[in-house]
């Protein structure tokens, strides 16, 4: 846990994450092939968000990083969501 000591992630974990990512990819291709109207966009974005969290948490080692790095990443994501919301409020109520 200290500066010098690195957490070694076993190969197996990475292989499992890849399988999950591939599964979610095929799932998102499958659901966008069905006509669900507005839910298609929501579904695809939801699956993409799950996939990106897997990449952030495991591939990018956030799970094993110190809290301040996790908090900074969270804040940047919140900032982005805030900008998206403000932009859409603007366009929606024009």
């Amino acid at each position: 846990m200290e500066n010098e000591k690195h957490h070694i992630v076993p190969y197996r974990i990475y292989a499992i994450i890849l399988l999950l990512l591939l599964l979610l990819t095929f799932l998102s291709i499958a659901i966008t092939n069905i006509e669900l109207g507005a839910f298609t966009v929501a579904g695809a974005l939801l699956l993409a968000s799950i996939k990106s969290s897997l990449v952030l948490v495991y591939f990018m080692h956030l799970k094993f990083d110190k809290a301040y790095i996790q908090i900074m990443v969270g804040l940047v994501i919140l900032l982005f969501i805030a900008v998206v919301l403000v932009t859409f409020f603007d366009y929606y109520f024009r």
Binding site: H6, T25, S28, I29, T32, T40, V41, A44, L45, L47, A48, K51, S52, V55, L56, F59, M60, H61
Partner: peptide
Amino acid sequence: RPSLLENAGLYWHLVDLIWIFLFPLFYLIT
């Protein structure tokens, strides 16, 4: 001294992360 490799990895995952959103937005949602 793994930093260079770790940072190369972080950068590569970022490229992957962006594609995870580009793919559904351009190719899937029609």
